[in-house]
Design a protein around this nucleic acid. Structure first.
Lengths: 245, 245
DNA sequence: CCCCAAATTCATGATTCGATCAATAACCAC
DNA sequence: GTGGTTATTGATCGAATCATGAATTTGGGG
């Protein structure tokens, strides 16, 4: 019983709460009650992010999160109403940021190429923001990415709230690819994205099978090795797919 | 708490049990106690396979499986000792079959091409058995595939028992690719497999986001559309990756 | 300094979960 | 049939789960 705990939402008793400013800025050392509260929420979300990314939403109990964050379980309910609320908050905290970055990167490239995009340029512009954050975003972003990878193979994905955050950047990607491959069929662009997405997703997942398969030659999260190869891979593949008669 | 319930395995009190012949053959209508028992186990595994593929191992309770299979929960413990036992049995039931089929398909191709494999031929031979089963294997195999997709983004994947079933066919794939691309670097072959694997995995997962992205033009599990495109995609991509200086 | 509201903890309830044990039903050998 | 073994059920335990409401602390405004 997957427990659709969202059905009877306990009404999130959290009172009014100031305009709900970004919860994300954890490192802040400001004082004051609100700042302290925001820091606590960030600690909770950090813990939840890590645990969820390892064991999935059903593999983690509210107690686990509370213990990892060093607070009482009731506090989680106070801030996020219920478990689903925590899960959603974890996703929303970063989903917007990464996707606006993607869209911006694509827009920048569209300008720079003066209306004549290349497949390689588009693919690179789409991938760059993620890999930059995977390399420099700290453990937090890597946990988030692994969680996305986990959630990505679920039916719930795509219909949820996250959809509206991720979709625009993908549509922008498709748009530019259409310009780069005018002869390609519409459907092939989407299938290409699907294949790209699968490869990318597996790249930042927690699956390190390649390490064993390659007898240690490749390490799963060696993003410096992955990014250029994935760009080459998808570029050539899109070109072939676009040449279908 | 991810509950490593495998730690104290309740010793599977199931007594001696005949030589443990293939549990897989469910449709059998043979009579007799043993046959009946095997059919029951198959029903249990079918139910577990479906539920696990939807909600993951932690999202399903033993009671859920028992209800879906129409038996008492105690019976699950009798046959499979504990929850992990059920999960493992679900995986093992099909893992061997699909991977020997893959290896056989690759071996057949290696013979047919007389020592001069092409990238496309190798990729096609590797993918063919899966897609054939996805199209004709009934709901059972599709559930299994979706479960694999789910498990594939977990750290536990690769170290488990399943590793030994999946690895040989992959190594055979790499071998043949090495012949097809003599100049390619070793590491690039493994990275290429990683990208292929990600795309393939997403293809049979329960993620139907492409349907929405493409406004209905593409349907996630339209394997007749996916297989040829994925072959083209990977072929071109491997060729490019193998041409790295 | 004091009070109010927000943030946090403490104690607890109801439910579900995995697992076990004894009891029954089905089957087979004799 | 009868006896013995295997397969299956019924009842139940203890632990863990999500959630709630009452207490307690914390911080800032008057």
């Amino acid at each position: 019983m997957p427990k659709p705990s969202a059905t009877k939402k306990p009404a999130a008793k959290r009172p009014q709460k100031p305009p709900r400013r970004g919860v994300a800025d954890a490192a802040q050392v400001a004082s004051g009650k609100a700042a302290r509260s925001r820091r606590t929420q960030a600690r909770i979300l950090d813990a939840a992010e890590e645990l969820f990314s390892h064991h999935g939403i059903y593999g983690v109990s509210i107690r686990d999160i509370a213990d990892a964050a060093g607070v009482d379980t009731a506090l989680l309910h106070y801030h996020f109403a219920n478990k689903d609320g925590i899960y959603e908050a974890v996703l929303l905290r970063r989903a917007g940021e990464i996707n606006t970055a993607r869209t911006r990167s694509l827009d920048d490239y569209a300008l720079a190429c003066a209306g004549k995009p290349s497949i390689e340029g588009v693919v690179r512009a789409y991938l760059q923001p993620v890999f930059e954050r995977l390399r420099n975003g700290g453990r937090g972003f890597n946990n988030f990415a692994a969680l996305i990878a986990l959630a990505n193979n679920t039916e719930l994905w795509g219909g949820g709230t996250v959809k509206e955050y991720f979709d625009p950047s993908v549509q922008r990607l498709i748009e530019l690819l259409r310009l780069a491959m005018p002869k390609a069929r519409e459907a092939d662009l989407y299938w290409g994205y699907q294949f790209l997405s699968g490869a990318l997703t597996l790249s930042y997942s927690r699956n390190d099978r390649i390490k064993w398969l390659s007898h240690g030659q490749c390490r799963a999260n060696d993003y410096a090795a992955i990014e250029p190869r994935l760009v080459e891979w998808c570029t050539a593949a899109f070109r072939a797919l676009g040449a279908r008669r």
